[in-house]
Design a binder for these strands. Structure first.
Lengths: 112, 112
DNA sequence: ATTTATGTATTATTATATCATAATATCAGA
DNA sequence: TCTGATATTATGATATAATAATACATAAAT
């Protein structure tokens, strides 16, 4: 894959930051990770993530507003699924980065 | 590229979220975007980004702690550069996603 | 040798946003 | 009406963002 000079050159950086922010939470990443395995109901997401129902719904809303997931209502359930496979690819890409292993030390600014 | 089922299956989700969060800010994205064009001094980053020096330094620290950029001191400047090209690839990947165009409407939860 | 200027980093501060929990609302079906 | 599934709202604790002010280090000028 070609690495561009300024990947966000013309893009709307604010929008970009919003999408990244929508993914940048352990709770939402957990949900996305589960949804990568296929469609799930809210209840299933709660069970498999260990997160509370209320929190899951809130996070799903954020993911929905950012077009990361889509929902389909089939009473009595709402099924959620990933809307954008590129998100998965992006996460795969990031997971291949170095430095993904060590946690930043908030008290040590000296490292390169 | 193969799309995995659970891309973050074994990964440290907390760490993942931290890296994403480190990127998920307009200021830091701007900086990363400029650095994608090559090494820059703090002053250059200030000029090219339009951000204040103090803010740039703060954001660079965050990027540094998350191993996204590295620095090299050559008096009287500190040169910063991207440490991890995969980050660029990741952003390219995300930029190809649909839904990157429309801004989420915080008052409308109804959309799919 | 002291001062001055330059480049960068740090700290303090305030406004705003986010996180997680709890409580409550909605809504369709039994 | 009662229940199950999901969504919304309220709330308090914590985190983040941006600005301003200041500190620090080195080099040049005096």
């Amino acid at each position: 894959m070609m690495v561009q000079a300024e990947p966000l050159g013309g893009a709307d950086i604010e929008r970009f930051a919003e999408v990244l922010k929508a993914l940048a939470s352990p709770a939402r990443l957990r949900i996305v990770n589960i949804l990568a395995g296929g469609e799930r109901t809210v209840t299933e997401l709660c069970e498999q993530s260990g997160l509370k129902q209320s929190l899951v719904s809130q996070q799903l809303k954020i993911l929905r507003l950012n077009h990361i997931v889509s929902s389909r209502k089939e009473v009595p359930h709402t099924y959620y699924s990933l809307k954008e496979r590129n998100v998965i690819r992006m996460l795969n890409c990031l997971s291949r980065c170095e430095g993904m292993d060590s946690v930043p030390d908030r008290n040590n600014a000296k490292e390169a």
